[in-house]
Design a protein around this nucleic acid. Sequence first.
DNA 1: TGCGTAGCCTAACGATCGTTAGTTAGGTGG
DNA 2: CCACCTAACTAACGATCGTTAGGCTACGCA
Lengths: 196, 196
Amino acid sequence: MVELTKRQAIEDVASELFREHGYAGTSIRDIARALSVQGPSLYAHVTSKEDVLWAIVDRAATRFEVAADAAEASADARRPRDPSEALAALVRAHVDVLTSDVDAAGVFVHEWRALDRDHRAQILARRDAYEARFRRRLEDGIAVGVFAMTDSAVATSTLLSAVNGVAGWYDPDGRLPATRIADHLAELSLRMVSNA
Amino acid sequence: MVELTKRQAIEDVASELFREHGYAGTSIRDIARALSVQGPSLYAHVTSKEDVLWAIVDRAATRFEVAADAAEASADARRPRDPSEALAALVRAHVDVLTSDVDAAGVFVHEWRALDRDHRAQILARRDAYEARFRRRLEDGIAVGVFAMTDSAVATSTLLSAVNGVAGWYDPDGRLPATRIADHLAELSLRMVSNA
DNA sequence: TGCGTAGCCTAACGATCGTTAGTTAGGTGG
DNA sequence: CCACCTAACTAACGATCGTTAGGCTACGCA
């Protein structure tokens, strides 16, 4: 076991199981079994099953937000007012986070519905804010003339669906290294919205 | 009740619930309650819960396949050996099927993991064959020089993730009619893979 | 009028769910 | 050596799961 704390080990194995079988399709005892422990033993480290889901989703969301902060800051410093550069940086950052922990990212993308009302509302608001970053860059590009699309809202959703799709097939031991995939997705994303 | 048979009514309401809460997160009694009926009453029309999921997924898969058949035949008849035309037709057909029954399509896209071994293997094989149609058109386009991309496998997966994303936000009563969305997705898809 | 039968009902089965309570074993510091 | 604490354990709770069995009711047709 490479984890520092038992709590972290629980979240890691829960991420894997939640991603494979879904939150509702995974029992506390399933998680415990993967850790060679009896079900009720987990409650020494965890207050509820939903608490585990929330920890995973919250952490993943934060990692996406922090990576996007860094990407935008660096892109704006390197080439100010260049929407292509900014969008490419956002996409690469997103794919980096995604590939660095596919399980947690997959849970973040697909299992937020299972959160309770408050947590779900909270995560939806953050997801909206995150999407708005991408849309803003698209609209900057339209204003400058480097991007063109029929509807920026549809394009934003489609772009994020495209990049999130990586969580569905990325394999850490696969043919393509993560950086190559990030570059590729940035290329596809840019072409998708670029003017002519 | 607009459905012809009770069985169809069950599948319709099950599609909605499976899409919203997932297969594992939906009980037989949940489905029955939505039909104002007691849980066990459903077993007069259904042999198991998995049987309902399989009916929904199988039917959705068939609708995608049939629509793709028609789209490719018509595109090849109208403009033979035009990969752009063929790809656009495939994308439009896909989005048409998706928007004509978002619930069933959403279940097909996300809940196939919950199928039992045989059904899951069956659906994965058909999904691979379906994806291969898109990839073939991409590679045709590369050969002719109208398309260009680093990796056709990655581009195919990304393209299908992008169009499947529509299932996540499409609203029949929303701002955009389905045909407009299909056109838009075709536009974005074509630009994503087109050569310069 | 009588008979099938279609479609629902209630009762109940064993299994499993998330979770609580109380207990035990093993290691650490005085 | 003993007190303590950590982290696991077993037992059990009420609820709910998918599913089976058997009965009641209302309608179609002779």
